[in-house]
């Protein structure tokens, strides 16, 4: 029952072939097997959102999936948000500009949630932003500067 399964998945545009026991969660796989430690673990029961990743284009919680379920799918983690040359995405840069973090622990999940919002909403309202990040808990910021960062990123994209 604990045998390991071969899986292939695309992470941040790169195909990875690896193996995982069925019970290994996707977040453990991403962190421990692939060494992508930008995705964090906060609760392992699907409430805090620290482990958010983009799965086939949609944000999900990677503590609520097993790695074997991701076989054949495409995932983007926080490490995949910057350009190949290390250029920060406008959203990342806005997070920096607005100081939308303190300890940084929830930040990757927040970036993933905000990235997904901006991918489908060109002009989000503050309510849209709060809704999009409401599944991601932050204990440091009170969300104020995170909301400001997403507003900033959306404005920048519009050239405002």
């Amino acid at each position: 029952m604990t045998d390991r399964r071969d899986i292939r998945l695309t992470i941040n545009g790169r195909v990875h072939a690896a193996c995982a026991a069925p019970r290994m969660t996707l977040v453990d796989f991403i962190r421990d097997e692939l060494g992508l430690t930008g995705t964090h673990i906060g609760c392992e029961h699907g409430v805090c959102g620290a482990c958010s990743v983009i799965f086939d284009g949609k944000p999900i919680r990677s503590c609520l999936m097993f790695a074997v379920q991701a076989d054949g799918h495409a995932i983007t983690t926080v490490e995949g948000l910057e350009g190949a040359d290390g250029t920060l995405s406008p959203l990342q840069d806005s997070f920096w500009e607005a100081h939308a973090m303190q300890c940084g622990y929830c930040t990757p999940g927040m970036l993933i949630a905000a990235h997904a919002l901006l991918a489908e909403n060109l002009d989000p309202t503050e309510d849209d932003i709060r809704e999009a990040i409401s599944g991601n808990l932050c204990r440091c910021t009170g969300y104020q500067q995170i909301v400001e960062a997403v507003v900033h990123a959306a404005r920048r994209r519009k050239g405002g």
Binding site: G46, G49, S52, F55, K58, P59, I60, R61, L64, M65, A113, A116, E131, A132, S134, G135
Partner: peptide
């Protein structure tokens, strides 16, 4: 029902 991220799955 939950949050956007849980509704996606």
């Amino acid at each position: 029902v939950g949050h956007g991220q849980t509704r996606n799955r």
